[in-house]
Design a protein around this nucleic acid. Structure first.
Length: 221
DNA sequence: TACCAGGTCCTCG
DNA sequence: CGAGGACATGGT
């Protein structure tokens, strides 16, 4: 598994996967640096659910224009109006509701306090929120809070199947996550954060070049 | 024209 | 549990 990571890294180079205000920072794992950047990642993680990042950027730009990457301003924003603003990101009614719930959670828990918690506590809390599933929770934990939590997505499943690591593309999320992290077997937490960050980014970079499941040949029973 | 994109929730067996 | 449908815009 680590070999796959090294291969991807040498072919694609460091990705700096999560953009801040539209800009990528390859090989810089100090991002995010401010609470506003943390919030931008959290909001982006919800907006990007089953949605192309390009559409998310449009929505994020509009939120920035209205000074809405801000907990208190976001709290004041009526859900309907918020939905209209994030329209380009799709599923806007659901996502507006998800954002309101997330922001209320952050107001109550405080980003500075959440930063002190470990990945297990964080995960449990995030998953309890309506609209936050395992991938969104883990993206927030890894990319916003920089805690070691590997993110599994559709590209991960596709690539690992192609590599022969798994046969069942629909294998449960937590089981696949454990399989990957067990095989990577990194001990040091700082190293885990860095490698999980980069590996997931590389998988997405590579995955975008792979044929989507179902195109050309459907899985045979 | 269809299908896909940095998923999650709900309902029904 | 797992399968199947709903949610919605924008790009190819």
């Amino acid at each position: 598994m680590y070999h796959l990571y090294e291969n991807l890294l040498s072919t694609h180079g460091p990705q700096g996967w999560w953009p801040i205000k539209g800009k990528y920072y390859p090989n810089d794992y100090s991002i995010p640096r401010t609470d506003e950047e943390v919030l931008e990642i959290i909001i982006g993680a919800i907006l990007t659910q089953n949605t192309a990042w390009k559409n998310v950027e449009k929505a994020l730009d509009r939120l920035y224009d209205r000074k809405l990457i801000d907990i208190d301003n976001m709290l004041k924003m009526p859900e309907k109006k918020l939905a209209r603003l994030i329209k380009p990101a799709g599923y806007f009614n659901q996502k507006a509701k998800k954002l309101k719930i997330m922001i209320q959670f952050l107001k109550k828990e405080k980003i500075t306090e959440l930063k002190k918690q470990n990945e297990k506590e964080l995960r449990q809390k995030l998953l309890s929120l309506w609209g936050v599933g395992p991938e969104t929770a883990d993206s927030i934990i890894l990319y916003a809070f920089k805690k070691p939590m590997f993110v599994v997505d559709v590209y991960t499943r596709r690539l690992l199947k192609k590599e022969g690591v798994i046969t069942d593309e629909k294998m449960p999320y937590d089981a696949l996550q454990k399989l990957i992290t067990d095989q990577l077997n990194i001990q040091d937490d700082n190293e885990r954060v860095k490698i999980y960050n980069e590996f997931h980014a590389l998988i997405v970079a590579k995955g975008k070049n792979l044929t989507p499941a179902g195109a050309g040949r459907r899985a045979t029973p």
